[in-house]
Design a binder for these strands. Structure first.
Lengths: 196, 196
DNA sequence: CGTTTGCTTGAATTCTGTCAAAGCAGGTGG
DNA sequence: CCACCTGCTTTGACAGAATTCAAGCAAACG
């Protein structure tokens, strides 16, 4: 369960055995069954989670009760409501496991300890935030400039593994269209000779 | 021209005269007339800009030639294509002055120097990235869950000064709707007794 | 084996974009 | 000072796209 995190980190920073020993102590393993929640809207997000195996979604629930997927996380991704995690304020989001999942959790103090452990680790943290920001920026750009069909093709291109694992209604919610529309888009694409 | 930056910084970090002296040396002033560009798509973004006075927009141009506003920046805001700035790769975005503007520019080396100058300053840099990320996240949430009218009301509520200063077609582009739609939305709101 | 869940499909509706035209500034030059 | 030009906003008519509502179907699950 810690193996995947070790592999993940060693591809980005210089990871000595001594450093790894210390890093491990800061994470606590957690199993989540499909349908269980890591975070519910209104609670404070007290951890960042590394997904060593499984699939989760982060979503908001609007006043009408409709849910909107803001992020998916599969093996080797991180997931958390960073705003709530940093500020300590209640979260507007929920995090739910879409498959049975193995997580490694770090709370606020662990995160602080990790940053203090090595400059490499701290810089990697900043890079992670920047990647998250860049991904959101791209997504806003897509929403502004592309049709639902184009956004779907972008998503298949960029996140094929997620499109494969996650149900269509969740993909539709992520794209900002209805499941019916996504179904029609896929039929239309198939008719024009697109790989399923 | 440096006054606004001094005010800005002193409200967020402990700003001694000595530190301020050093900070000033890292920024170079730049005047931009309305319509001039700080960055053109395809160029590398070599600076982050603090807007001491004026108004700018960051936008992308899609294959059809349509422009999409991703960000506005007025007095006391920062603007830049951080991806290009960090990676050194050509930018997909352009930055244009919507009014005559006074900027303070820091290039890559200056940014590095600034981070090295004080831990406070470095932490403030991370906070800035996080605020940018949080703003984008909110915006994605809006795009997923709200109609054009609701997004417009959110924008009026959250960025009244920008809505006031920027032309409607640019607001419309930011919201992801056509200028015609925004015009109709405003008429409809006025009819239902909304402050102009 | 019956129930549930998710996907598909159809028809009606609502909304938004498109195109074209006219009105309304603000700025420029005669 | 006025006439003109240019860019922005408004408006109307229309076409097109996506949502909604409703129903059917298939695979998965207890």
């Amino acid at each position: 369960m810690f193996d995947t995190l070790h592999t993940f980190l060693s591809s980005r920073i210089v990871l000595t055995d001594a450093l790894w020993e210390q890093i491990m102590t800061q994470f606590s393993p957690r199993l989540l069954r499909r349908g269980q929640f890591l975070l519910r809207a209104g609670e404070v997000c007290t951890s960042v989670a590394f997904v060593s195996r499984g699939c989760l979604r982060l979503f908001s629930t609007d006043p009408k009760g409709d849910e909107h997927n803001l992020q998916f996380a599969i093996d080797n991704w991180w997931i958390s409501d960073r705003d709530s995690f940093i500020s300590g304020r209640p979260s507007r989001y929920s995090i739910e496991a879409l498959e049975d999942s193995e997580l490694l959790l770090a709370d606020r103090e662990s995160a602080r300890n990790l940053r203090a452990l090595s400059g490499d680790l701290e810089r990697e943290g900043v890079r992670m935030i920047n990647r998250a920001r860049a991904a959101l920026e791209r997504r806003v750009e897509w929403m502004l400039s592309m049709s639902g069909e184009e956004r779907y093709l972008q998503m298949v291109d960029r996140y094929p593994d997620i499109v494969q694992r996650v149900s269509q209604r969740h993909i539709a919610s992520y794209l900002g269209i209805t499941p019916e529309s996504l179904s029609r888009i896929r039929r239309s694409l198939a008719g024009r000779g697109h790989r399923p």
